[in-house]
Amino acid sequence: MIILYDYELSGNCYKVRLLLSMLNVSYEKKAIEFYPAAEHKTDAFLSINALGQLPVIQTGDLTINDSHAILVYLARQYDKSDTWFPISDPVRLAQVTQWMCFADSLTSSASSARLVNGFFYDLDGEACRQEAHRLFRIFDEHLWFNEREDHLWVVPGKTPTIADLACFAYVVLSEEGGISRMDYPAIRRWTDRVKRLAGFVVMPGVFPAGPGPVHVLPANDTFPSAGTAEA
């Protein structure tokens, strides 16, 4: 049984919960109160992860920290379809890695702004927001052109990868840091698509997308017309 050291409001823990759910892997949660108790800085937790960061998973004698490292491990260990972390395709593997690094820069901007607003961190919230908007502009353009070529996910290809989940968490929580996504319509459509993946779960502040096709194309998509049911 996998044990996940988890904080319900953490976006990084959310990435791991998402993939565990999408891969249908059962696990046990151990709640670590990040705020206000700061349990991640206690001796008990530091003995598990000296960095004092969530999430951490343990299985047998194995302990892995860092959300992205955990995503890589889970995808390689449990993904029977072998699509979430495509090691056999050097180009896509590089792209997945690149966008996971991009997701780390979202953690230091969009997530930091949320730490200022929601957890009273002493950081420059305005600078975090400005940087997040700069990144969102680039991300929106990337996703807009992906849609143009019928690519629905962060990394071009038929299936989502762990880069989608790595980017999703702090994008979808951005409004809690005062970062509106109104100017990023392609990002907003992509979050709908992620929400429609089988096994998707919500967390506080994340809303479900409702029924609809995952494979939404931006134009001329055929969809049953409401009028056809009329006698």
Binding site: R181, M182, P185, R188, R189, D192, A209, G210, P211, G212, P213, V216, L217, P218, A219, D221, F223, P224, S225, A226, G227
Partner: peptide
Amino acid sequence: TDLVPRHVFQAQLLGREMALWRADD
């Protein structure tokens, strides 16, 4: 092309926010 099926678009005009959505019809 912004208004894909089963999506709600967040728009703004003259300071007013609008929810734009395309129904199945």
